[in-house]
Design a protein around this nucleic acid. Structure first.
Lengths: 248, 248
DNA sequence: CGGTACTCTTGATCTGGGTCAATGTTCCAA
DNA sequence: TTGGAACATTGACCCAGATCAAGAGTACCG
């Protein structure tokens, strides 16, 4: 969830490099071969549900392209997004039979899945897979805790700025114009999804986005295309301590 | 953080059983011996800081007795607790040099620590330690995400009830009177600490605790000693879906 | 085209929880 | 036994964000 995971695409595993790197950092050939045997792809359209909370989940996997969300819902319908799954992020829990959250594709989505029991077996035999997974899980835990601060203590404006910062930062490597701090990206979420992530209502999200626009912190082209003329300013609005250790 | 970790005390590692079980579920004798070599104890008084966010952290460890909190603070002083460390909970991150959060003892605290680099070395050599740690980290991640729902979507009253539920549940095995759903425990946190955990102010915490008392959901003896006459009622107030999968 | 179904924006009003302030309760130390 | 420090309660008032309501784009389909 929202970590910077310096995934370098390896030449040796051409077909599905991101997942292999995500699962097995060292990418040794025999392991890759074994992973190859138990893997398969699944595609989803924007809006489709990958899995419902409580359903049997007999695979683990990672996002190849597109974006998915992890959400929890209370009986009365209040929902909270608890994770945003971006390419290379891992889903599923070795050693648990059913899904703990709803996983929904917010854009068209391709996932690379591994059948769970052979994957678990392989994890038992291949120590550094468990170590890699531990590393990734610790990153997610940090991200979740960072988000607890956002949810518990930030104002609506700071929340929006925080969300925009992470999305911007993750696209930064791709879109940042050299020597400038200008960043441009497309919002992969509706106002409602943003609200669910931030613990706000969609009206408040809309108002605060408008306010940030009016104040020149961001520029909007259409509803979804965002330009941040000055990232420093945005980070400042987010209330992050300078550098923005957020999601690092 | 707040997971039920069915730690059974093993006879073979009498001196410091909880940590060994926490770190190494299978508890084989040669590994225990190696852990023994690199472990040491640290004691803290209530209120002492174990480590400040950003400080070099050259150990990992787990809580033997007492309670510690994990908190983040913004420059302007707003603070959010992101974890509650109870006996058997693990602290520290293999592969990271500095602490990400302030760790503070809220009661007298004993920790069992392992020097980080030999521990990491051992983890490399002993696969199931990494697997055990992965399991624990996944539990913590679930707990953190569960808490995101509390912070983002629950009302003040529900937040208080949620917090009381977890504390009650964790003490349940010890204090629950057979065949009754009555639970009694001491709050290990000040009103302010509760507020920091719940994303509220201490005044609101105080008011809601009083309200739950007035409505007969809880009984108070002094400020800290709580009796829950009917756990079902409390869980209901917390808005948890029936069973209370929370922190399970 | 015109319709209908989303998604988003904006306004008006209400309210839960924050803020400010005063008072209570323990408990310890002088 | 009294003073003070830390923790807790309670009241009065206020405001950020929720709620309710009315449009405005935008896109797709018959």
């Amino acid at each position: 969830m929202l970590n910077e995971r310096s995934i370098t695409v390896s030449q040796d595993c051409a077909e599905c490099p991101i997942r292999h790197r995500a699962v097995c950092a060292r990418c040794e050939s025999d392991e890759l071969e074994r992973l190859e045997e138990i893997k398969y792809y699944r595609k989803f359209e924007a809006g489709q549900t990958v899995i419902w909370s409580g359903d049997r989940m007999d695979f683990v996997g990672s996002v190849v392209s597109g974006i998915a969300t992890l959400t929890q819902t209370m009986e009365d319908g209040r929902t909270q997004m608890v994770g945003l799954l971006l390419p290379s992020d891992f889903v599923g829990r070795p050693g648990r039979a059913s899904a703990a959250y709803d996983v929904v594709a917010t854009t068209d989505l391709v996932m690379c899945c591994f059948r769970k029991s052979p994957f678990e077996e392989m994890m038992r035999q291949t120590p550094h897979i468990a170590q890699r997974l531990l590393e990734m899980t610790l990153d997610e835990l940090d991200a979740a805790r960072e988000w607890m601060l956002v949810l518990g203590r930030k104002t609506a404006r700071e929340k929006i700025a925080s969300l925009l910062s992470i999305i911007a930062r993750r696209d930064a490597s791709i879109n940042m114009r050299a020597a400038s701090s200008t960043v441009t990206f497309d919002l992969p979420l509706t106002r409602e999804a943003m609200a669910d992530y931030l613990g706000l209502t969609l009206e408040t999200v809309s108002r605060q986005v408008s306010a940030l626009k009016k104040d020149g912190v961001i520029e909007l082209e259409g509803k979804r295309h965002v330009t941040v003329p000055d990232m420093t300013r945005l980070l400042d609005e987010a209330g992050d301590d300078s550098d923005g250790g957020m999601f690092a």
